[in-house]
Design a protein around this nucleic acid. Structure first.
Length: 484
RNA sequence: GGGGCCGUGGUGUAGUUUGGUUAGCAUCUCAGGUUCGGGGCCUGGUGACCCCGGUUCAAAUCUGGGCGGCCCCA
C-alpha cells in the first residue's frame, strides 16, 4: 500500500488552499468556510443551503424576478412530479432522461409512475396545450423558480453540477410567429446581460452550433464563463425552440384566418451557476468577494474594544449601524467576543465588501476606519461622511470588480490562426478564438484534436477572416475550449 | 462502461506496513479568567475508529461483503 502523502496545503486548517495552486480544492473549501452550503447531506450531488449563501442566492433571484416581471413575464409554479404519460409524449426527451431521472413510486404501487422533473417541458407543455385555443391566448410568457433533478453518474460539483439543481428558474414562452419568438429571444439576451452586470461579470456570449441545440430547435445563444483553470463553464442559454415542441405536445391555436397553427416557442433558464461564477471569478486567497449588488451583508462594523472605553465604543458601533440601516443598507455589527483580527479574517472569508472599524482612535477623532474587501485599501472617514463615502465606495467596488473580471477574461482568450496551436493553447489554460467557417466538418475536426476540446460557440467577426481548419474565408469566429 | 485511492470526535489529520498502553495532535465547540487597531493567552470540559460478518486470547489495524466519498480513463 502506498504511503499517504501529507496534506501540505492543509497544515493549518483555517487556511484556504491558494486559488491559483489548486482551484478545485479552493472552491470546495470556500463553500464551507464562507458558510455558503453544507455539503454533508448524504446524497451525492445534493447539499444544504446555509443562511449566508442562500441569501446571496436569493439576492440574485430577486434580480431576475424584478427584471422578468418588469418585462411582463409572469411567475408560476408547476408540480415537481411529472406523470409518466406526460414524459412519454416527447419520445426523444424521454429517451434522453429516463435513465438519468429520479423515479418516484407511490406507497402501494409496484412500479414508479412519476418522474421528479429533470426539466420543465413535460410538466408545462401539456398545460400550454389546454390553455391555447386561439391567437388571442398567445403569447404565453411565464417562468418559475424551482428545483430540477438529474441522477448524474458523472462526478458532481456543488452549484455547478448537482443532482438537485436548486434555485433554478426557467422561462417558457409561446408566440404566434417566428419573428415574435426571435424578438422574445433577443429580449432575454438583454435581460441576462443585465443580470450579469449586477454580478460584475462579463460572460462570453456566443451562438451555439445548430447540431448542438435541442432536437428540432432552430438556434440558441449561450453564455459562458472562463474559470480560473481556463476551462469554460456554460452559464445560461436561450433556446429558439421553433415549432418542434409545440408540434410534439400538440399545442395549437387558430390564427386570425381560422387556420390551425403551432406556436413558436422560446425557453431559457439558469440558477445557482450564477453564484458559482461569482465565487469562482471574484474570490481570492482570503475568501469570497461578493459584488455589492448581491451582497447579503454590504458593510460589517467591528468594534476595537479597549477595556476603558468599551461602552463608548459599542454605543458608537450601534449608532453607525442604525444610521446605515435607516438608509436601507445591510449593515451588520459584529459584537462577538473574538479578537478583532479573527473577525477580520472571518468577514473577509465571507466577502463582505466594506468593513468599518471603530476603536478609541476613531472615537477621539470623530471618525471611523473603512476597509475595502477587494483592494484592502484602508481609509479614515469623518463621522458625518460615512453614508456618502460608503455609497460611493460600494459603487466603486462593483465597477472595479467588473473591470477586473473583464481583464481576467480577456487575458485568457488567445487569438490564433494556426490550427497546430490549438492544443497547446488550450492545455496552457487559454480559450482560443479563431476563424471558423461554421461547418460541421470543421467542427468535428476540432473535436478530434483532443477529448474535451470543442468549439462551443461563435460570434460575428469584426473583420473578414479565414477558417482555422479549412482556410475558407468567413465572417465569424469560433471559441474553442475545454468544457466543464 | 473500465480502473485506482480512501472512510478515525463538527472539521483537518496521526496511528494501519509489523494486530497488543488510557486512540495522539490541531482546529471548532462549551465554562471560567485575562486580552483586544490583523487569526491573543491560561485553566478545565464534551466529543471519534462507516455498517455487517470472519480470523484471533486480542482488530482502527488482517480478511469477505455492503454502504459512502474522491480521482483517472473511455
Amino acid at each position: 500500500m502506498p504511503k499517504k502523502e501529507p496534506e501540505v496545503q492543509n497544515q493549518q486548517s483555517n487556511q484556504l488552499t491558494a486559488k491559483k495552486q489548486d482551484f478545485s480544492s479552493w472552491y470546495s473549501q470556500i463553500l464551507s468556510a464562507a458558510e455558503v452550503i453544507d455539503k454533508r447531506y448524504n446524497i451525492k450531488g445534493m447539499f444544504v443551503w446555509l443562511p449566508y449563501g442562500y441569501k446571496a442566492m436569493l439576492n440574485i433571484k430577486a434580480i431576475w424576478d424584478k427584471l422578468y416581471q418588469e418585462n411582463g413575464i409572469k411567475e408560476m409554479y408547476f408540480p415537481l412530479l411529472i406523470p409518466k404519460e406526460y414524459a412519454e409524449i416527447n419520445d426523444s426527451w424521454f429517451k434522453g432522461f429516463k435513465d438519468e431521472a429520479f423515479w418516484v413510486k407511490a406507497g402501494s404501487e409496484k412500479k414508479p409512475n412519476y418522474i421528479l422533473r429533470p426539466t420543465g417541458e413535460p410538466a408545462m407543455y401539456p398545460m400550454f396545450k389546454l390553455w391555447t385555443r386561439t391567437y388571442s391566448d398567445l403569447p404565453i410568457r411565464i417562468y418559475e423558480t424551482v428545483s430540477s433533478f438529474r441522477y448524474e453518474t458523472k462526478h458532481t460539483r456543488p452549484l455547478i453540477r448537482d443532482r438537485e439543481i436548486t434555485v433554478w428558474y426557467e422561462i417558457h414562452t409561446a408566440h404566434e410567429t417566428k419573428e415574435e419568438s426571435e424578438k422574445e429571444a433577443k429580449l432575454h439576451e438583454e435581460i441576462q446581460k443585465q443580470i450579469w452586470k449586477k454580478l460584475a461579470i462579463n460572460p462570453i456570449i456566443v451562438q451555439k452550433p445548430g447540431w448542438e441545440c435541442f432536437p428540432g430547435a432552430i438556434g440558441a445563444v449561450e453564455f459562458f464563463n472562463i474559470m480560473p483553470t481556463g476551462k469554460i463553464m456554460e452559464n445560461g442559454s436561450i433556446n429558439l425552440l421553433g415549432q418542434s415542441y409545440s408540434k410534439k405536445f400538440e399545442i395549437t391555436f387558430k390564427d386570425k384566418k381560422g387556420k390551425i397553427q403551432n406556436p413558436w416557442m422560446v425557453c431559457t433558464g439558469n440558477g445557482a451557476r450564477l453564484l458559482a461564477a461569482v465565487i469562482a471569478i471574484h474570490g481570492d486567497d482570503k475568501g469570497l468577494i461578493i459584488p455589492p449588488e448581491i451582497a447579503p451583508v454590504k458593510i460589517v462594523i467591528i468594534p476595537i474594544i479597549f477595556k476603558k472605553q468599551e461602552k463608548e465604543i459599542i454605543t458608537k458601533v450601534k449608532q453607525v449601524q442604525q444610521q446605515l440601516k435607516k438608509a436601507g443598507m445591510e449593515a451588520e455589527a459584529d459584537l462577538g467576543q473574538e479578537s478583532p483580527g479573527s473577525k477580520f479574517y472571518n468577514w473577509e472569508l465571507k466577502g463582505v465588501p466594506i468593513r468599518i472599524e471603530i476603536g478609541p482612535r476613531d472615537i477621539k477623532n470623530k471618525s471611523v476606519t473603512m476597509v475595502r474587501r477587494d483592494t484592502s485599501q484602508k481609509i479614515t472617514v469623518k463621522e458625518k461622511d460615512i453614508m456618502t463615502i460608503a455609497v460611493k465606495t460600494l459603487a466603486d467596488i462593483q465597477q472595479s470588480l467588473l473591470k477586473k473580471a473583464e481583464k481576467l477574461t480577456q487575458e485568457k482568450i488567445k487569438k490564433i490562426t494556426n490550427k497546430k496551436e490549438i492544443k497547446t493553447a488550450v492545455e496552457k489554460g487559454f480559450v482560443v478564438q479563431a476563424g471558423w467557417c461554421g461547418s460541421g466538418k470543421c467542427w468535428d475536426k476540432v473535436k478530434e484534436i483532443q477529448e474535451g476540446i470543442e468549439i462551443f460557440g461563435s460570434q460575428q467577426a469584426n473583420t473578414k477572416t479565414t477558417c482555422i481548419i479549412c482556410s475558407k474565408p468567413c465572417s465569424q469566429v469560433g471559441y474553442i475550449g475545454n468544457t466543464y
